[in-house]
């Protein structure tokens, strides 16, 4: 920022104000943007992650959480998966059965339905196309 037509003290004062504004307002805005962006991105991908996890083999909620936790940045709070699983069940993409567990109380096991498998294939295909599109764009810009 260069304001040549101001007297020097005023120029310095304006520079100080400018620096203060950049430090206190511009940076937090950038942080809020990145937080919001990753949250929005994660929201859609988490569903894809859950369906892929359940698609590999039937598993119970805690196992799904553990597997997804292995994907860096995908699950911030493990509890988030339960309302999502509840919705997927309502939409008949997954079903649940109660299975006895050798080391504890019976557990609810989730598995993919035929409808869920069809949806998963479609989502994976869409994801592949989206990813390759973004990758090719990145190559062009770099």
């Amino acid at each position: 920022m260069k304001i040549a037509y101001w007297p020097a003290p005023m120029h310095n004062l304006l520079l100080c104000i400018d620096r203060y504004l950049v430090t206190h307002y511009i940076d937090p805005m950038t942080d809020a943007f990145s937080l919001n962006w990753t949250t929005q991105l994660r929201k859609g991908i988490l569903e894809l992650g859950i369906l892929n996890a359940v698609g590999s083999r039937p598993m119970y909620g805690y196992q799904i959480g553990q597997i997804l936790r292995g994907v860096d940045g995908l699950v911030v709070a493990e509890g988030t998966i339960y309302p999502l699983l509840n919705r997927l069940k309502r939409e008949a993409l997954v079903t649940t059965t109660i299975e006895e567990s050798p080391d504890g109380p019976p557990r609810k096991v989730y598995q993919l339905t035929d409808l869920g498998r069809t949806r998963l294939e479609w989502m994976n295909d869409h994801w592949r196309r989206l990813k390759s599109g973004i990758d090719s764009l990145r190559k062009e810009t770099t």
């Binding site: 909620g61 509890g79 339960y82 509840n86 919705r87 309502r90 504890g104």
Partner: peptide, 20 residues
């Protein structure tokens, strides 16, 4: 629209899996 009863039992099951 989420079934709170079911989530409550999911949470309980989760904790039992870790601390059971």
């Amino acid at each position: 629209s989420v079934d709170a009863d079911e989530i409550e039992s999911d949470v309980l099951e989760h904790i039992e899996s870790v601390l059971g």
